[in-house]
Each structure stands twice: as structure tokens, then as C-alpha cells.
Nucleic acid binder design. Structure first.
Lengths: 96, 96
DNA sequence: AAACTAGTTCTATGACAATCGAACAATTAA
DNA sequence: TTAATTGTTCGATTGTCATAGAACTAGTTT
């Protein structure tokens, strides 16, 4: 079940909930100001929480359609889906 | 304690959480498309939930700085604070 | 092959959120 | 002054969310 299959309000709520968390805001801000992709570990290091928790937040963002993930070897690279932000939260990233 | 006294991320999370709920999205949409102020009862009627629940959602929106309230006699009128939306969620209302 | 590294999944836990119904307060109408 | 109306607050319930730690998978290094 991906975000695109839900009706408008359901996906909107999922997206907003995904963004409505201090940790995930930090992750989004990092990704945005970094520009491109970031290693999951790289991000996790700066958050000072367990890797299982980091993984949980990445999943939440991915399932909300706010990020994409690419695996290379044992590393995973995450980047923001600017299209989703533009559709549901236009201008939001620039306020961070 | 009002939203303006908190640091940026704290208020951001409160605002986003306030918006990340299906009922409150409906309320916001109603207020936005109606244009001006609306009677609490008027809004509540269309939501099909108990008045105590409606009151709870109004408080959540107000404490997040997303609405203001004005009491006239026994009625209460609510309107959106467009300034808050513009600052934290620019363009968001137009996506609704 | 064995040890190491990067992430995920599972289970448990504590905190917080949404809802309801009942009691309450304040205003207006009869 | 008693009814009715409009909204708030309180207590209880149910559900969801964020976190941690342990066990696990997949890929890498030695």
C-alpha cells in the first residue's frame, strides 16, 4: 500500500504526521541543506538515537512518500522527494 | 504558554501536529473556503461528532496559533490566522 | 569461513492523542 | 426564575506513536 493509492485526505494526514515530529524535521532539514543523497548512517550519527529508531523514522518518511531510498552494497542512500513536498507542502522546505 | 514563546522546532511540531488530523483538516478547509468567521456550532454540525470533541479540536487549533476566537453572547466565532499559515505552511491552504 | 558493518524487524513499554458522556458555566428565551 | 442553548472541562477508554534492545539479514573484509 503506497501513499498514492489513498484518497486525498488520508495521504495528506499521513504526510503531515510524518513531518510532525522533531527528529524527522531534523532529518528533513539535514537532507535539504545537504542537497543530494545522504547515507543513513551519516544522518543517524548526528541524531544520538538507536539505529532501530533511526530506521523507524526513515521508514515513516519513505511510506509517506517524502523520501526515496537507494541501496548500494551495504549502504543505503536517502533523498527527499521534492515533488511530494511541492504538491502537499509547497514552500515548506524553505521555511526550515 | 502560547506558541510564540517556544523555540522554532517546538512550535513547528505543535503546528504540524495540529494540522495532521483528518477532522481538523476538515475544519480548516471549511473555514478557508467560507472566507470569514464561522460559528463553532455551524462547523460542528457538519462533522458528526460530539460537541466535546469539537471543542477539543478547536482548542488544539487555537493553542497551535492557527485560529483566533471571538465570543459574542453565547456564540463563539472562529477564524483562521492566515499569518501563521503563511509563516509555517506557506501555500498549504491553497492545496486543500 | 569467521568476524565485522549497515540496516531491518520484532516485541515491549511509556507517553500522548482522539473520542465520548456527564457535569458544569454562561448567556438567552419563555 | 426556570428552560433551553452554546460551549468548556473532566474522567475514562481506546488507540497510536516514539523509543529501545535483541535477534536477524545482507553485504564486506580478513
Amino acid at each position: 500500500m503506497t501513499i498514492e493509492q489513498l484518497n486525498n485526505d488520508e495521504s495528506r494526514v499521513i504526510i503531515l504526521k510524518a513531518v510532525a515530529d522533531a527528529m524527522r524535521l531534523k532529518i528533513i532539514r539535514m537532507l535539504y541543506y545537504h542537497g543530494g543523497e545522504m547515507n543513513c548512517g551519516e544522518i543517524g550519527e548526528q541524531l544520538n538515537i538507536q539505529k532501530s529508531t533511526v530506521s523507524y523514522h526513515f521508514r515513516t518518511l519513505r511510506e509517506a512518500g517524502l523520501t526515496t531510498t537507494r541501496k548500494i552494497g551495504q549502504n543505503k542512500y536517502v533523498k527527499l522527494r521534492l515533488d511530494t513536498f511541492a504538491t502537499y507542502l509547497p514552500g515548506f522546505l524553505d521555511t526550515l
